[in-house]
């Protein structure tokens, strides 16, 4: 059953990857890459159970947080072309 779940996750990852490659806009790509990251978290969790090593869940937790921060960083970079600029003045 773990293998069936993992197979479904991998199929979804390929679909997301295809969307990231096709594109058309940069936001589509970011969306697809974020979805890919979420699926990676699930894949790690299920694989941990498959191999009888649930400690891998720690990796899954860290990957969730890295995925979140990474997506926001890429999004910000795509929008401002800069990760460090203080854009509060530009917004208001």
């Amino acid at each position: 059953m773990y293998l069936a779940g993992m197979a479904a996750i991998v199929v979804t990852m390929f679909l997301a990857l295809a969307r990231a490659a096709i594109g058309p806009t940069v936001f589509d790509r970011i969306l697809a890459v974020n979805m890919f990251g979420t699926k990676t978290v699930l894949l790690i969790a299920v694989a941990g159970f498959l191999t009888g090593r649930p400690e891998w869940l720690d990796l899954a937790i860290v990957y969730t947080l890295v995925n979140f921060t990474g997506t926001l960083a890429v999004l910000r970079f795509a929008r401002f072309g800069n990760l460090a600029r203080d854009d509060r003045k530009a917004d208001r």
């Binding site: 779940g5 479904a8 979804t12 295809a18």
Partner: peptide
């Protein structure tokens, strides 16, 4: 539960391609 979750994942992946707008 695993298989149902997997199916929902794939449905989302399909939707990513069938929907026409971001």
């Amino acid at each position: 539960l695993l298989i149902a979750g997997g199916l929902f994942c794939i449905v989302g992946g399909i939707g990513l391609h069938r929907f026409s707008e971001f």
